[in-house]
Write a protein that binds this DNA or RNA. Sequence first.
DNA 1: CTCATTTATGGTAGCGCTACCATCTTTTCC
DNA 2: GGAAAAGATGGTAGCGCTACCATAAATGAG
Lengths: 342, 342
Amino acid sequence: MTRPRSRRGGGRPTIADVARKAGVGAITVSRALREPGRVSEDLRRQIQAAVDELGYVPDPNARALASARAEVFGVLVPSLTNNVFAEVVRGIYDSLSDSPFRIQLGNTHYSGLEEERLLQVFAPQRPAALIVAGIDQTPLSRKLLETAGCPVVQVMETGPDPVDMLVGFSHFDGGRTATEHLIEMGYRRIGFIGARMDPRSQRRLAGYRAAMEAAGLFDPRLVTTTPLLSSVTLGRELLRDALAKMPSLDGVFCNNDDIALGVLFECHRAAISVPKTIGIIGFNDLDMMQAAFPSVTSVRTHRYEIGRRAVAMALAEIAGQRPQQRVVDLGFELIRRESTAR
Amino acid sequence: MTRPRSRRGGGRPTIADVARKAGVGAITVSRALREPGRVSEDLRRQIQAAVDELGYVPDPNARALASARAEVFGVLVPSLTNNVFAEVVRGIYDSLSDSPFRIQLGNTHYSGLEEERLLQVFAPQRPAALIVAGIDQTPLSRKLLETAGCPVVQVMETGPDPVDMLVGFSHFDGGRTATEHLIEMGYRRIGFIGARMDPRSQRRLAGYRAAMEAAGLFDPRLVTTTPLLSSVTLGRELLRDALAKMPSLDGVFCNNDDIALGVLFECHRAAISVPKTIGIIGFNDLDMMQAAFPSVTSVRTHRYEIGRRAVAMALAEIAGQRPQQRVVDLGFELIRRESTAR
DNA sequence: CTCATTTATGGTAGCGCTACCATCTTTTCC
DNA sequence: GGAAAAGATGGTAGCGCTACCATAAATGAG
């Protein structure tokens, strides 16, 4: 009378359909798909044929419910448009494209509160791994990460106390290296220009300050920042501000390459010679720094590789390979170009 | 003896725990959370108290399995680093951040095959809606979209035959408008420079060609393209190629702003005066076009708004509001700047 | 005041899959 | 050659939730 079967499902084949067609039990189909080694050659072939014929695709929701573990990587980044994070995310996607894992991407908008909210959304899904940008989680976020019951990789930075694993580099050292390069090239009144001073920017600024103080060159009026989101246009404005405060400025460490490009354009417009009158160094080494005229010195960071490594580490841990390196410092590379070649 | 309860789950509270604590049936809790209007004020308060006290969060996997519909928007874009799509994606994320919907983002790498593969991964999840870039799906992709059983929004372009809904603008018209602007400003030997000629780029090229032919100016040697991925560096190289083929070039319609920036830098380096000797127009109007020196004319497109509209249309359809506008042309805007002001 | 209709709540039965345990077969070892 | 160990397969019982239907209570109609 009643038709209890297929009451709701849209008629897609289920594991039971495959089992019936292949003449085996449902659980054997499940195993053949997930642990082929545990099913005999014969049955495996039979099952594969049934799968192909029916066009069977496992329902990830049912899978997640039954196994209490979703095949999902949760990824939290502060921005989707910032090229730096986009590269990390691309590395993550590329590394996972051949795996059964999906990606759940969250945009925290540089907000700790938003990060907490997103973690509370992600955690109930029981993700296979979590990848988060930065090491400055709020206490609640940290607790959520610690109790998530899955591998956690913090990316973009190094730090003393990872939740679980860590892939990144030292922003402090990056800032110091950039500043030391300007000093070495003979610049003296070197400004720092930055927008949206997130924790990583703060550490680059600290590196700048350390280098300047070590050389006896630091002056707080050399530092120009704004809470606004970074952009090329903003770089132009900030250089104007910096010059207004300190007309004798002869070098600029830009917190990122967008700002650096804006600074370069403002120099063009004001007929300030680069690198003669002002030296410019950026951060991240986006493609355009090499193409710019004059080409712009920058600190190259390995964003794509950070994404790849984070995934590799998480996958290793999922596979049960525990005794690996838990903190990876990918470093950075000073790329010397025309904009600082005095 | 045996403890059948909580055999696997990590001890997180379930809807049954909330129901017990609130002294109601599980189904009433479910209703109170999803359709508060159908539960009496009293019970609703009681249930909310129990939810808060236990810290209950519904399991999205169980929900998806039971209701045969996941609260997920599937989003397919050709690139994660291209600023244009990043903006669309940002619009989508921002529009959905206050809704219960999650986002499943896929990167097709401009490949129709990869798009098919991703749709086959997405479809079994029974997403609440699908948003895909472009209108040039393969027959299989189109069939997958049509049979997905959820609202589908194609974005970035307009076209005659949407799968379901459409938000975008005419790339042909954009290309024609850009080219006509150059002609109007007195340029005659106007080149087209483009990388990675995806279908949208092809249509912009077609618009360029139409404008040039209408003015009796078209010459195939004016067109320079490459299958490589677009970048600023590539823009420089392509201008060199274009000038080698056609030294009398006096204007360039760049297929996008990255290329335009590279062309501008190459002009600087080769001491070619912009806009006097060569006029430059880009496409998309990224922030840096306004900041560049000279500032670069571009065709502004409304990427963020496209993302927002796509979500709004999908949500309206999910809410059952059918008789809406199914095709939305958001147009574009010519932004005249110094690089074409001869 | 009775009967039909609406509203509020609950019980039952799955959604499609996998963990756990049982069973049966094959291999290994003394 | 027989017992023990290892390997292959299947049955059962949920995972946590919601669709469906049933029931009880409140409301409206005649």
